[in-house]
Simulated scan of single mutants.
Amino acid sequence: MTIVLLIISAIALFLTAVYMSGSWVKYSLTGLFGIALIASLALIVMNDSQHFGMQKVTTTKTVALKSAGSSQLDMLLYQSVGTADQHRVYIYKTTADQKKPSTTTASVKTANQVKTTTGSTKLVTKTTRWTYQSGTAKFWFGIANNDKQLIKRTNTFYVKKTWVVLSTAQAKQLNKLAKQQSATLKARAKAYVQNTVKAAMMKNPSMTQAQLAQLEKQAAAQYQASAMQSMIKTVKQAK
């Protein structure tokens, strides 16, 4: 509405100054329309540069976080934007059956951070926008279409220590490496389990079959985790 007032004031000022004969009415109207013109222009500038009539409003949204990787390993993926890995777009899922992963926005107004948690994995998004303080303010300046203008957005990913944060290129390399070493890892895992069971039986010959089965399961899981961490370290160090 302020822009409309500006236009009307400018037209009225022109018509009054050009077509009205000199009298106190002309001078009064000229002064009135001039003041209205300057005031509306000043308000528009203040609204545009200083967000006059607006206030900052921050909203927080929390969603569950699921692994974005295709393997059984829990993953949070990212894609570097620009050079030297200065900015990242994170790739994630909020449900296990989500077919197309979600991504964070690639914008200078968006900041992303990853934190380790002992609680549930989640994504907390805090968004701050400019909004009009009242309906009156929106009536006067709403035509500028700047309501709910984004100021900043912060995405905080809370993941457990068991999660792995990799780039999409590293994730592909990890899958490739796992396939290449699959046969070797199986043979080594078998030998590791056998040696672990043998050592345990030497210490405690009276172990039951149930105890041996449990030990084999734990040893296999331990070796698998160790081998995976080794491959993850390899792909992270690769250039």
Rank of each mutant, 00 (worst) to 15 (best):
L13Q: 10
G82C: 02
Q211F: 06
L77G: 11
N155R: 12
N112P: 07
A238M: 11
K56V: 13
D85M: 10
S23N: 13
T196R: 08
T105Y: 08
I151D: 06
V81L: 07
K236A: 05
L174E: 01
K138P: 00
K203Q: 15
T83G: 01
Q181W: 08
T208I: 01
T94N: 08
V235H: 02
T104Q: 10
I143Q: 05
K66L: 13
K26C: 04
N204Y: 04
L177K: 14
K126N: 14
F52Q: 06
A191F: 00
Q72L: 13
Q211M: 09
S226Y: 09
M75V: 13
A213T: 15
G22Q: 11
S49H: 12
A68I: 05
A187Y: 06
G119P: 09
V193L: 02
Q218T: 15
K186D: 10
D74T: 12
G82T: 00
G142A: 05
M20V: 07
K186I: 06
A144T: 15
S28N: 10
G69C: 14
A111G: 01
V114I: 07
S102G: 07
K56S: 12
I232V: 04
R88A: 14
K122V: 11
A187M: 11
V124T: 05
P205L: 01
T118L: 11
A84S: 14
V89N: 10
